[in-house]
């Protein structure tokens, strides 16, 4: 996937994980609940501009609790966008938290 530097990493992670949430079959707990939770948090951060201090830590925790524990690769794949975004573009998430009203899109 090729993206230029105008694309927001949190927004990308949000969009991709929404896809995985939509595709999750629901059979195994980490994928079913993890994608749901990830999207809930990302939606609030990205779409509602209501990112909070603990959010980044929570996002880290959620994907770590999913990684390696899912039944199939769909759940494991859902980890990748958020994990890469958080680790490669931490400043963009920090910015969301510190500049709450700043909307990306």
């Amino acid at each position: 996937m090729v993206l230029n530097d105008t694309v927001s990493a949190p927004h990308l992670a949000y969009k991709m994980d929404e896809f995985f949430k939509h595709e999750s079959c629901g059979k195994c707990t980490p994928c079913r609940e993890g994608t749901y939770w990830l999207v809930k948090v990302l939606h609030r951060m990205v779409e509602e501009g209501d990112a909070r201090a603990g959010d980044i830590e929570t996002l880290h925790a959620i994907y770590q609790q999913m990684a390696g524990n899912c039944f199939c690769l769909l759940g494991e794949s859902a980890v990748m966008p958020i994990k890469s975004a958080l680790n490669l573009f931490p400043e963009e998430f920090e910015a969301l938290v510190h500049e709450k009203d700043k909307r990306y899109g």
């Binding site: 707990t29 980490p30 609940e33 993890g34 749901y36 925790a61 770590q64 609790q65 999913m66 524990n69």
Partner: peptide, 14 residues
């Protein structure tokens, strides 16, 4: 322990 605690937290979210 971390994995099991994680699964329980996930289950309790819903």
């Amino acid at each position: 322990k971390r994995a099991q605690r994680g699964i329980l937290e996930f289950l309790l979210t819903s």
